[in-house]
C-alpha cells in the first residue's frame, strides 16, 4: 500500500473526509467499486438476453433450412471475419492491459492501451465496412431489391424476384440468412460504436488525471463493456461465417 493511499485511508476513516470521487451514499471506495461492478454485470446480463432474441431467430431458421444457411454463408468472406475476430481479441487484450496499468497507477500506460483498443475498434469497423459494401454490391441486402446490386439502377420499380447471376445458386429464401446476418452484425456494430464512445470518455478522463490506484472504476467498467462486445463476436463468427 502506498503512503498516499494509507494517508487517505486514515484521514477518511477518522475525520470522515471522503475522497471527492466517493459518492456520499457509499460507505467506502471498496463498496462503491463493488456496487458499480454489480450494476455492470446485471447490465451485461440484459445485453446477452437482447442478443439472445437474435440467436433464437438464428436457431429457428437454421433448423428449418440448413441447406439454405450453408449455401448463403458461402457468400460471406470468412477470411475477413477471421481477421476481425483477431482484431477484436487483440483489442480485448489491450483493454484488459489498460485496466492493469490503471490499477498500478501507470497513467501513460493506461492511455496507451486505451488508444490501441480504440484503434482496433476503428479497424474492426473499417473491415466491416468492406464486408457490408461487398454484400450490397452483390445484391445481398434483404428487402425489396434482394438479388440486385444496391449501387445501381437494376432495382427500379422493385419486386425483384429473380436473382441475378452474381448470386446464382442461392434460393430466394436466402434473404432470411442475410436478414439475420445484417441484424446480428449490425446490432454488434452499434455496440462497437457505443464502445468507442465509452472508451474515448474513459481515455479523456484518464488523461485529465481522474484516476488513481484507489479509483479506476470507469476504466474497469468500460473494459467490461468492451469485453462483452468481444464475447458476442466470439459466437457470431462461427455461427455466421463457418456454417457446417
Amino acid at each position: 500500500m502506498s503512503t498516499a493511499s494509507s494517508t487517505e485511508h486514515a484521514a477518511a476513516s477518522h475525520g470522515h473526509e471522503h475522497p471527492k470521487w466517493l459518492a456520499h451514499h457509499f460507505d467506502s471506495p471498496a463498496q462503491q467499486f463493488d456496487t458499480a461492478k454489480l450494476g455492470m454485470w446485471i447490465f451485461i446480463c440484459t445485453e446477452i438476453l437482447m442478443f439472445g432474441g437474435l440467436f433464437v431467430a438464428y436457431a429457428i431458421f437454421r433448423g428449418q433450412e440448413p441447406q439454405m444457411f450453408h449455401q448463403a454463408h458461402e457468400h460471406l468472406n470468412w477470411r475477413l471475419g477471421a481477421v476481425n475476430t483477431i482484431v477484436l481479441l487483440f483489442s480485448s487484450l489491450t483493454a484488459a492491459l489498460s485496466v492493469r496499468q490503471s490499477q498500478v497507477g501507470d497513467r501513460k500506460g493506461t492511455s496507451r492501451y486505451l488508444v490501441l483498443t480504440l484503434l482496433c475498434a476503428f479497424g474492426f469497423l473499417c473491415i466491416k465496412y468492406l464486408e457490408y459494401t461487398a454484400k450490397l454490391d452483390h445484391g445481398l441486402l434483404p428487402g425489396r431489391c434482394f438479388g440486385h446490386p444496391w449501387f445501381g439502377d437494376h432495382c427500379v420499380g422493385g419486386g425483384a424476384a429473380v436473382l441475378p447471376a452474381a448470386v446464382h445458386g442461392l434460393s430466394t429464401r436466402a434473404h432470411m440468412f442475410f436478414a439475420i446476418y445484417f441484424m446480428m452484425t449490425g446490432l454488434h456494430g452499434v455496440h462497437v460504436l457505443v464502445g468507442i464512445g465509452v472508451l474515448s470518455w474513459v481515455l479523456m478522463r484518464n488523461m485529465r488525471g481522474d484516476f488513481s490506484k484507489g479509483y479506476f472504476t470507469a476504466v474497469e467498467i468500460g473494459a467490461l463493456y468492451w469485453h462483452l462486445v468481444d464475447l458476442v463476436w466470439i459466437y457470431l463468427f462461427p455461427l455466421l461465417y463457418l456454417v457446417g
Partner: peptide, 18 residues
C-alpha cells in the same frame, strides 16, 4: 468491510498468454 479497493492485478504476461 475493506475500505480501499483491493482488486486483483493480473500479470501482463499472463494476459498475453490468455
Amino acid at each position: 468491510e475493506e475500505w480501499d479497493v483491493h482488486a486483483h492485478i493480473s500479470d501482463t504476461k499472463f494476459l498475453v498468454g490468455i
